[in-house]
Simulated assay, not measured.
Amino acid sequence: MGSFKGHVLPGTLFLLVGVWHIWSSMVRYVKNPKGFRVRVWNPVPGFDGRLKYTELYVVAIGAFIDMCIELLYSTHLKFFVNGVLNPSHMNDFEHSGMLLMFFIFGVVALLSEKTRFLPLPEGALCLIVATAFSAEYLLFYFHSTNHKGLEGYYHLLLVILIGLCILSTVFGALAPTSFPVDLSSGIAITLQGLWFYQTAFTLYGPMMPDGCMLKGNTISCRSMDNQVRGELLANCQFFGLVLGVIAFALGLYKAAASRYGHSELRSFHAAENGFVRD
């Protein structure tokens, strides 16, 4: 079982990173379409390079803070009961393990970029973040907290989005010059962040479907019809977010092309589509 804050915090982190990834991917492409390369993280320009690694710090520090909340605050430091892991807080331990993977990615990426101790190629960083998403996927798929009914359906849709994050980052290592792959990664991360928000507002906020309610630590519906209507509502919310993010991405691309577009961008598109004549 989760909570409103427990979904909004990771949702905010994913949303910030995802939107920044979409914008940065587009800017890099329109500036130099022929030399485009996939990046698993994107530097923040300006201020004499002092903000360059902001994204990696957000990932590492955000994951660390969330991990401390799950492992230290939520468990009240009661890690063991009768010599075994406290069964009342298994979900907190699982969440901590998932967040640890993103924290490791942030630290490894910082070491790779800022020091000479761990010089890793971009493809290797793609595979590391894909491992973090895989840990998240396994957590929500084999959760010790049995997500059933309407709650289970929302988490099933979340698992689908996490799977898309895994695929896009793996393909980023396999196709390091593909703009669609890099853009897809940003879109998938953004959708995951938005779906965390949607889950928080629907299951733990004011958007609970009619006939369903939060009782203690479980979400129950009065009848199967109420549950089905709730699941259909989830489908509408899901596709609405997908369409919204795609429209948002198209708007960003237009803005990026207008502001940063290379003079050869249009001819490059024409050549890719076979419209250039010898």
Rank of each mutant, 00 (worst) to 15 (best):
T75D: 11
Y204G: 06
A247E: 09
K34I: 06
G62C: 02
A109M: 02
D66I: 13
S185C: 14
F179E: 03
F201I: 11
M26V: 03
H95C: 07
E55F: 05
G211C: 00
F142G: 06
H7S: 07
L110N: 03
Y137K: 00
C212G: 01
G152P: 00
P176W: 06
F140R: 08
A271R: 14
K34A: 15
V59D: 00
F268Q: 05
V81N: 13
L232C: 05
K148D: 06
H147V: 13
S25H: 11
G46L: 06
H89T: 13
M90F: 13
V27W: 11
G11Y: 11
L71K: 04
Y204C: 02
Y141N: 07
E151G: 05
H76W: 09
D225M: 00
F4L: 12
S178D: 07
M98G: 01
D278W: 08
N217K: 13
D48C: 06
A247Y: 14
S96I: 01
V59H: 02
G216I: 02
S24T: 09
K148Y: 06
P45I: 03
I128K: 04
T202W: 00
K215C: 03
C165Q: 07
L250P: 01
F47P: 05
L265I: 12
L183Y: 03
A257Y: 07
A175N: 07
Y153R: 02
N32G: 04
G106V: 04
K254N: 09
H7T: 07
V245A: 09
V59N: 03
F14R: 02
E94K: 03
I166R: 10
V81M: 11
R266H: 15
I246Q: 15
R116I: 04
V8F: 05
Y29V: 04
A188K: 02
Y197S: 04
D92K: 08
L125M: 09
Y29F: 15
L13Q: 14
P119T: 09
Y260N: 09
P180R: 10
F4E: 13
L118D: 06
F248S: 04
G244K: 10
R39C: 14
K254E: 12
A200G: 03
L127S: 01
H262N: 15
R259L: 15
V59F: 07
A256S: 15
A257N: 10
R37W: 00
N146C: 11
L77T: 14
T131R: 03
V40G: 08
V17K: 02
F64M: 12
S223L: 02
S184I: 08
E55W: 05
L51A: 11
N42H: 15
L203W: 10
L183P: 05
S134M: 12
F117D: 11
Y29M: 10
R50S: 14
F36V: 08
G163I: 09
I246W: 15
H155Y: 12
E136Q: 14
L158M: 06
L99S: 04
S185M: 14
W20H: 14
Q192S: 09
V170G: 07
S74C: 13
V44E: 08
L232R: 00
S88K: 11
D278S: 08
C212R: 01
G11R: 00
A234F: 07
F179H: 09
I219S: 00
L110A: 03
S168V: 05
E264N: 14
G62Y: 00
C165K: 01
A255S: 13
E272D: 10
